[in-house]
Amino acid sequence: MSVERREARQPWILLSPALAAIALLLFVPLVFILIYSFWLRTATGADQIGFFLDNWQEALSDRFYRDILLGTLKIALITTIACALMGYPAAYFIARSRGNKAILLLLLMLPFWVSYIIRTMSWINILGVSGAVNSILLSLGIINEPIQMLYNETTVILGLVHFLLPFMILNVFVSLDGIDETLEDASNSLGATKWQSFLEVTLPLSLPGLAAGGLLCFVLGAGTYITPLILGGPTDAMFANLVYEAIITQLNWPLGSALSLMLLVVLGTLVLIYNRYLGMAQLMKGLG
């Protein structure tokens, strides 16, 4: 075998475990889901094997699914913007801190040591009628009776921001940490104020990190179902809740498969649009 051929093969050999894992854990299940989406659920709950377009027809033509999907995208977008606004200053602070960067990063990682569900449920103890905030306000005499703060769209967004903020901070941090600080010094020495240096130098250079964080937050936010289940009110369901209900409550796996693929296609399309305007290479740079 020639050296060129061996060298051409080597990356594939090295990649083969990862490719095998992706094929088995992602591609094969996706094919199963696709096949399932063309089956039908019978009245007894059993599946009728065949090629039926009923589920797709229902998923694509029913306004109910479209409205919930748009609502989900709206919540995911608000969450992403909130994460960006809150995450950027935090990431900047960590990247520019001297000496204690490792401790700050460790603190950032700490929430991951606690279950996502437990973290989400902790808001019940904070915002509940007999939770910390109401108790403090009552004891200070600011309010006479507890305020109902839980179980609405705002608390769903709050829970999602709580869950996704570390992802945004980490992405932005990686981007900021890679920027040569002397560039800002050079900008200052040329007469720019600190704020101008930030706007003209640091922010543009850190955009790939912000974009990568934004994409991650948006996709994860749009696909969640636990947060609205725990912190949402009666009408705060997101699209993943519909998938959960179709599969778990209604035992309608074929419809659930069609709905999950619909969400996948919508999110995939958004990622492609993102790629078209920002470029995956830039995102990869942002992801470090």
Partner: peptide, 18 residues
């Protein structure tokens, strides 16, 4: 059980504000 398929679906919609 005779109405399960129809009613569970209908309730799922009403539950979400429809």
């Amino acid at each position: 059980n005779g109405h399960e398929q129809e009613w569970s679906k209908e309730f799922g919609r009403i539950q979400k504000g429809y």
